[in-house]
Design a protein around this nucleic acid. Sequence first.
DNA 1: TATTGTTATACTCTATAACTATA
DNA 2: TATAGTTATAGAGTATAACAATA
Lengths: 156, 156
Amino acid sequence: MAAQPRYEELGRQLSAIGAVKRELSRTLPADCPAGSAVVLALLDKYGEMRMSRLAELLAVDMSVTSRHVAHAADRGWIDRSPDPDDRRSRILRVTPVGSEQLQELSRRYTDALAHYLRDWSDDDVLQLSTLLARLRADFGDCRQSRTHTSPTRTPA
Amino acid sequence: MAAQPRYEELGRQLSAIGAVKRELSRTLPADCPAGSAVVLALLDKYGEMRMSRLAELLAVDMSVTSRHVAHAADRGWIDRSPDPDDRRSRILRVTPVGSEQLQELSRRYTDALAHYLRDWSDDDVLQLSTLLARLRADFGDCRQSRTHTSPTRTPA
DNA sequence: TATTGTTATACTCTATAACTATA
DNA sequence: TATAGTTATAGAGTATAACAATA
């Protein structure tokens, strides 16, 4: 349990981090907004999955996920095939073209980070990643306790 | 200099942190979007200043700053008085009403963080704040090297 | 009836560019 | 001419709600 000024400082730092994210997204190609890039990265990391699972990983509403996915699918980066077990669902997979695209995105993103964080040690980067993951996890738990059924779903 | 997988992991964590920010902004009152809240917090922390300085602290374009400030000024939270030394400029100050508003915002924000981060030690919070500050600083340097004149200004 | 996913609409945040008023 | 700030416009991201198809 931390003291109040610590929380206020963290609050300021969190709201300021948007500038970093914007700077990073400037490295992306024109027809690939950040939303599509994250979709590709998650599908590549965790393998094929359904919309609902992807929405959960993205921590956004499924309607938002649907748009990002549609954008990527329109460009042939991912494939939406019907789920034979439940024909309401679709299975999402990265296509070969999407895989190439992802390699390019990954290269640019990594280059940018390597440039900006040239003074950071490997351990510094790991430490920040770990703390951010923990932050997100602790918030995520509370998010799920808000809506008991489906966390990434408009309650209707 | 960190290894590539470290960068990719950091990239994922950074893009996921938006969910935390959204959750926090849900604690704000309806007529006070996050933009206004940050403006109030910065003016309170650093004292009266001009638009250009505030834009620099927010790390957004001055046009964006102008909108946030207008929103807060319309509600009487901040005061825009002409700068006697340069009549193109305006000096921004938190009003007494704005000060009350800020207290309420700060209370809500801190309560939310205290709830979600109940398992975090004081040192954990400090460490994350410090790393985020460093991240922003290292990106900020590069931002300034992009535009040599005025960093938070549309080049026209 | 309930659930999966899509679409329509609205709101916030941001950047670019054109504009004004001063310097 | 150049600078401080405003405003008009456009784009990305998100949430809510209504909807279609299937369970």
